[in-house]
Structure formats: structure tokens, C-alpha cells
Amino acid sequence: QETITAVHAFPESLIYTKSFLEFVDKVNAAGEGVVQIEVRGGPEAIGMFQQPDAVRDGVVDMVYTPGSFYAGALPEKDALVTSNMTAAETRANGGIELIDQIHQEKMGLKYLGWFDSGVCYNLWTRNEPTLDDGGNLDVSGLKLRGNAVYNAFFTDYLGAQVIDLPTTEVYSALERGVVDATGWTQIGLIDLKWNEFLNYRIEPCFFSTDLGTVVNLEKWNSLSEEARTIVQDVAIAHEAESSEKLGAVRDEDFAKLEAAGMKVVTLEGDAADAYLAAATQKTWDRMKGLMAESPQGDGNYDKLIELFYK
């Protein structure tokens, strides 16, 4: 029996971690006597932002993390960030195969699967957002909290005053009025209790979560054929299942928020199109620029967009 050690980027309480632990349970059930995943913990075992380097160096064999945590080594992760497709679709059209190939080439990692896909981001605000004559979002009065994932969009397109804050400080910043708007995934606002201060959700949603499971390539190649097949098959099945499951969780969260008074403001027509186009285009520009600087170049750029964006 072979053993794979693993860590996850987020604390156990987060829904995304629970999904990964489900995957682990499934592998351990299917792989009895052949292969087992041994979870060593979350950010308390290896720091959140050090996990990608740890799996690259082989300190741990498997990591569940957003691609954005290793953006410096693999700017192509923005293809997943900007994607409007699910893992199952991109598994079918060869998109994930390409991403896997890039991971192997650039980082010596096997990209096992894109879990919890199909969840996007909204902009959430305290006060009713104002729209200009064209129906576009007016952010001039907003104190908007940003981070590295969406800053290209927020600052370059929206021209907002972005205040960079770690997730743990957002609650007290909202409480005191230091910020009054933030981007966040569709799921999780209730867990973070930010809904105590945020009253509006702006539609349409943009981007996608980019959580993936990566395995040290040397370790992966050292596993028996049988073990590899079990782990890979379970991962592919979990890609589809997790994304369906989170869809249901999102609907539940939205219903709960609306019952508690959360209002939805939807950008219409051209304004919505321009908003979404900017979110993707500004981020693609960033990806292309960074790809071009790397030794492998930006040859895969068009292909990536074709496979991850419809």
C-alpha cells in the first residue's frame, strides 16, 4: 500500500476544505490496500502561501490550493480565474489536460483536478450602488476592499479606490466603515459574517474559483499504475460532483441571505456586457504579459482562452 501526504490551504471549517476531505475519503475507500491519502492538516501545518513551494520541493506530496496562490510561477492560472465553464466541460474539451501539461512543465506538478468549480464572484456593498445614465456601476464613492485576484479588474477598469486588506481584517474594517464594499465568492459570506454589514449583491457575477489539487510529479510517477488510476478517476468524478453540490449550496446561501434582507442589483444590457468583458479582458491582459516574460512564452494564450471561455 502506498501513501500520499496532503495539506489544504484553508482551515477545516471552510466549505472548500470539506469538499477536499470528501475527495480524500473517496480515494481512501476506493484505494484500500493500494493507495491512501494521509492529510497532515491545513495552514497550521504548512503556511497557506508556502504550500505550493512545499509540494514543488516534495516536502508534502499533495496540496489543495487556489491556483492564485502560485500565480508568480504559473500566470496561466488566470485562465481558470476568468473561466465561465465548469471543470466537467473543460475536462471534456481537453482544457484541463493542457493545464496539467503546463503544471508539469513549469512547476513539476501533476494537476489532478479542478474542484469546486462553477462558483463565481460578486461585488457586495453596504449601501445601494448608484448607476450612471448608461446603467454602468458608479464606484466613485465606494471604499472597496481588493486583493491580488481582482485588482486588475477593480482598479484598471472600475477605477475604484482599492484598500488591500487580509481576509481576517475585513470584518472589523466593515464594522468601522473603513471599507464598505468587497468582492467575494457567491458562497461563504454567511460563514464570515460579513452579511451583518453588507446589504447589496451586484449581479452579474464574474470570474470563477480556481481551487485545484496538485501532486508532486516525481511522487506521482513513482506510484503504481493501479494507484494512479484510482486517484485520477476519483478526482475526475469529484470534479463533476463537487461543482454540482456547490451549486446547491449557493442557492441555499442566496435564499438565506435574501430572507435576511440582502437585495440584488443587476446591471442590464450593454452595461452588464461591458462589466463582464472588462473583468475578463483586464485579467487576460495581465496573464498574457506575464506569460510572455517566462521562458516558455505566451504560445498557449489563445488556446487557453478557447478552452476555458465560451
Partner: peptide, 21 residues
């Protein structure tokens, strides 16, 4: 942590721990 590579992680951890607002 598997020998010398664990020490590299220690330095990376220190990096992460100290570049913290």
C-alpha cells in the same frame, strides 16, 4: 519534512511570516 528540502520550507515560512502587515 524529508531532510534538506524541509529547511528551504523553513526559510520560505520565515519569508511568509515576516512579510505580514
Amino acid at each position: 519534512m524529508g531532510g534538506a528540502k524541509g529547511i528551504t520550507l523553513l526559510l520560505n515560512n520565515g519569508f511568509g511570516g515576516l512579510t505580514n502587515y
